[in-house]
Design a protein around this nucleic acid. Structure first.
Lengths: 113, 113
DNA sequence: CAGCATGCTACATTATTTGTAGCAAGCCGC
DNA sequence: GCGGCTTGCTACAAATAATGTAGCATGCTG
């Protein structure tokens, strides 16, 4: 199977050897704080520090890393006058998550287990 | 309360100090392979090894960890006769992601940057 | 200029993930 | 009941990613 035989040059996309867009996206969103960042930016733009505060004071290192990735992906942008915000594309993506909120509420109630 | 560690010496829930369901969910889904697992289980149940194959041969350690978490969350279950599958709740959650597929396709095309 | 906020980086400490090997239990044909 | 197979799952060292704290350079405002 397509495994690195012995010369570990460099991995490909990370999280996906297939490169199928959905896999790439799933992996990107599956990194720590990615979903949370998109979520927190949902209502308004935030400065990097305000975002950090919104994200339970996550370390600036990861936040900055995620922000770079999300910017590169075109979901987030740095508005020169007012911190980070979602792009049109990012907003589209974010809307995808809206049902998640309702789901989470329902889910937490069923948490009898 | 689902999770609220009473000892202040150590970390709290991980990913959320608030314990708001959506934050807990966002954190759970934001762990590596969580989203992917739910995605791969979308069409059919898979044995742990088939799932591993579907997930680019991710290490069984994480897969097993994620599987436990997702089972505890009530999204996934181990069908004695046929491997892992989504629960009704898990299927509900998974349906939330369906628009993501279309989005990913569109996104990959706009990947001019 | 001082005072403050911003985006971002350094870096040592921890935590998580990876990769590989392997276990015990169940099933099948023999 | 013994190989030969598959299953779910675990061990564990090495690699990678995240955390927490400090701090830099820049751009304000007064």
């Amino acid at each position: 199977m397509p495994k690195q035989p012995s010369s570990p040059k460099r991995r490909r996309v990370r999280g996906s050897r297939s490169g199928r867009p959905i896999m790439v996206l799933l992996d990107l969103l599956g990194r720590r704080w990615s979903l949370r960042i998109l979520w927190e930016l949902h209502a308004q733009s935030l400065t990097s520090r305000a975002l950090r505060a919104a994200c339970d004071e996550a370390s600036p290192t990861v936040l900055q890393a995620r922000l770079s990735e999300l910017r590169e992906a075109g979901f987030v942008e740095l508005d020169p006058a007012g911190g980070y915000g979602l792009t049109a594309l990012g907003r589209e993506l974010e809307e995808t998550f809206l049902p998640l909120h309702r789901f989470a509420e329902r889910w937490s109630k069923r948490q009898a287990s």
